[in-house]
Design a protein around this nucleic acid. Structure first.
Lengths: 236, 236
DNA sequence: TTCGATAATTTGTGATCACAAAATTTGCAA
DNA sequence: TTGCAAATTTTGTGATCACAAATTATCGAA
């Protein structure tokens, strides 16, 4: 029995002989979206192995689309295919953690900088609204909501860049560290977290690219540097 | 009829009923490797659509492993799954090209810098040997050999970094621009190319990280900036 | 000859099957 | 109770099938 990834009952199946009900070519997209979302809000525990048929049953589809999605996610290093074929959520190591942080600091401020030129007043308003909900999730101490909203904030911003190259890379990075961060927040809570979103929003308002990059960099460093460190035996 | 990706005759098939000859779990790896190599040396033309069964037949396997590999490569943006399900090698656009260049300049010098600390005399010697063959391919005007050897040079260096994060991202970038570069070299030839590998090797020898980063950055800028530009209607 | 509709083919998608390797459980002996 | 070997189950892999959508080929009318 795995976590409840399937939201719609849809296929309670009975015997489900050829349920051609769903549209063509959507099963894979649905599975992909479900697993990605699950990874991002930390429903998968690092080190825990994930089974093909298990996911398939949870999502009410045949193993076929799941197989393809797993390959997809493995290519993005969000899942790890072990030599014996077993699939699991990668465990975090100190060196991995350091390099993810380092790479995020290279890419994300740059991406935010590109995005800024494209930000509309409407988008800025949306970002403010999301940030308010982030604060809310922090005071309530709801890790899943925080992860979801923090992700939403960053990518609402990054998506504005219309980036075709850096954005997918950054998405891959988030898939790689999100499951680990969830375990950390589960242990130490989210109360100590202070985001730099306010500084970022201020920088956007005054159209200061440098300030925005600094704010994003600071947000990343705070989020990962302070919280994550104490949860890894520092071996590097 | 597609290009000859399969090297071993292995499955001339006759009727090939259940050829359990190959070891278990190698079909996918073989397909993955074959298609990746094909992309890197430019055997696939951007815009040309690639078919599941076509690749499967070329490689002498069932469509199954090919499906998984295609998903993998699509996740790395090396292939593009169009809305109608058709798969093709992505075409290059000016904005894509610019962003790939920009991202390469962010990541690859950094990666080379990390790698330098790990370089052994043995590896340095290997790099020199590869570079000689690169020169050879340039004077001979052999684009495929050049692409293969240039790739080999860069990744022999980058692999030394033992990077788990940046290296896969950079690999994804190379898969994205390699097919396009091949078409360029096919048109304008490789004679005008001058690589900065010598500078890089010198920097490694004197253990100068800054110089190495500069050399790599210059190599990237030369290779893409000068050659690629004139082959794209600059729309940005 | 040219254009457009219809027929034939190709193609991706999802499901199912067979199989072997691996993991898990079971059960017996010390 | 504990340890280990046999048996059972689970799991990934590759192949094949059925089906619909899309592409391509075919052929007749203007």
């Amino acid at each position: 029995m795995q976590s409840d990834l399937a939201h719609s009952p849809a296929n309670t199946s009975e015997h489900a002989t050829q349920d051609r009900s769903a549209e063509r070519g959507t099963a894979r997209a649905q599975v992909d979206q479900a697993i990605r979302a699950g990874l991002l809000i930390g429903r998968f525990i690092p080190g825990k192995s994930v089974t093909l048929r298990g996911l398939a049953k949870d999502l009410g589809v045949s193993p076929m689309p799941v197989r393809e999605v797993i390959q997809r996610l493995a290519a993005e290093k969000a899942l790890e295919v072990k030599p014996n074929g077993r699939v699991q959520v990668p465990e975090m190591s100190p060196s991995r953690f350091d390099e993810i942080l380092r790479t995020r600091l290279l890419l994300e401020p740059e991406l935010a900088g590109i995005a800024m030129k494209q930000i509309t007043p409407r988008l800025l308003r949306e970002l403010k609204e999301i940030d308010l909900k982030v604060d809310e999730s922090l005071t309530l101490g709801d890790p899943e909501a925080y992860l979801r909203l923090n992700h939403l904030f960053h990518f609402k911003l990054y998506e504005a860049s219309k980036s075709e190259i850096m954005l997918p890379l950054v998405k891959s990075l988030w898939l790689q560290f999100a499951p680990f961060m969830r375990t950390v927040y589960g242990r130490v809570g989210t109360v100590n977290l202070v985001d730099r979103h306010k500084e970022a929003l201020a920088a956007i308002l005054e159209k200061n690219v440098t300030a925005l990059k600094s704010a994003i960099a600071a947000d990343i460093s705070d989020g990962m540097g302070i919280i994550g460190r104490e949860n890894l035996s520092d071996g590097s």
